[in-house]
Design a protein around this nucleic acid. Structure first.
Length: 256
DNA sequence: ATGGCTACGATCCGTAGA
């Protein structure tokens, strides 16, 4: 199974890039974040025409998540059960025997802000949810935009970012709490080149300078991690005209 | 230098992203 995640920063704008990338990369499952599309206006027919099943949970202007798969998407659950939240950030489904949770974690805006507190509360709720999901689904993948760069090597300029939102210690602790459940960062299962990132600022020629952060991740439960053969970032779509500021991330999982 | 892009829904600017 080729599993991918991509924050498209508006599905409407990025639909041509998405279509091209699906045809080229041929993922079996794709988690999409920041669709910015309310469900009534979701481009379901366009995506089905590309050969994918799709489920989605969205809202106008902000947030919004979707799950695309070659195989049927079953037991679909939107949001974090028991955590009241207007913001459409989580969508789970089972496909080809794998439970997939698509997440768009809060940005946090600035350390100490109300949005930062919300981010930490949200992460705590996510951790409890994933603990329960792991108990029910041994084959669990959690993919999305986590808005946390786990370590300094995931940051282009750790000194400039020190203590800032996305790298602050409470955020990294929240990330490590997910790993403590037994989930593995698929990217770090392998030897990787240095300075690999998944997001680059639109401003200041961030992409050309490779001034980025690795904040998009695919977490795998132990049974899936044991079968994972590769995990990469595909910078290709970031080089196109009018790109998303995020690149797709991928994990390959061998058949059992 | 606290800016610098981009998307959105609203107007000709504010909010949000990261």
């Amino acid at each position: 199974m080729k599993l991918a995640s991509w924050n498209v920063n508006s599905l409407k704008v990025r639909l041509p890039h998405l279509a091209d990338w699906l045809a080229q990369a041929q993922p079996d499952v794709l988690c999409v974040q920041e669709t910015k599309s309310e469900d009534a206006k979701f481009p379901r027919a366009e995506i089905e025409a590309l050969g994918y099943q799709v489920v989605f949970s969205g809202q106008k202007t902000y947030n919004g998540v979707a799950l695309l798969a070659r195989t049927a998407l079953e037991d679909v659950v939107a949001g974090i059960p028991g955590f009241a939240d207007e913001q459409k950030r989580v969508l789970a489904a089972t496909t080809a025997g794998v439970r997939v949770v698509c997440v768009y974690c809060p940005n946090g805006q600035a350390v100490g802000s109300a949005k930062y507190e919300y981010k930490l509360r949200w992460y705590a709720a996510l951790k409890d949810y994933l603990a329960a999901e792991l108990a029910r689904h041994p084959r669990l993948a959690v993919a999305g935009d986590f808005n946390v760069a786990p370590e300094d090597r995931d940051v282009h300029d750790p000194k400039a970012w020190e203590g800032e939102v996305h790298v602050s210690e409470p955020e990294r602790a929240a990330w490590r709490a997910l790993l403590a459940l037994g989930l593995k960062d698929s990217f770090r299962l392998f030897e990787q080149p240095e300075k690999i990132y998944s997001w680059w600022d639109y401003r200041m020629m961030g992409f050309r300078r490779n001034a980025g952060l690795r904040i998009d991740h695919i977490l795998l439960s132990a049974p899936l991690a044991a079968r994972c053969t590769a995990s990469t970032v595909d910078k290709g779509p970031r080089k196109l005209e009018r790109p998303s500021d995020h690149a797709p991330v991928l994990a390959e999982i061998a058949p059992p």
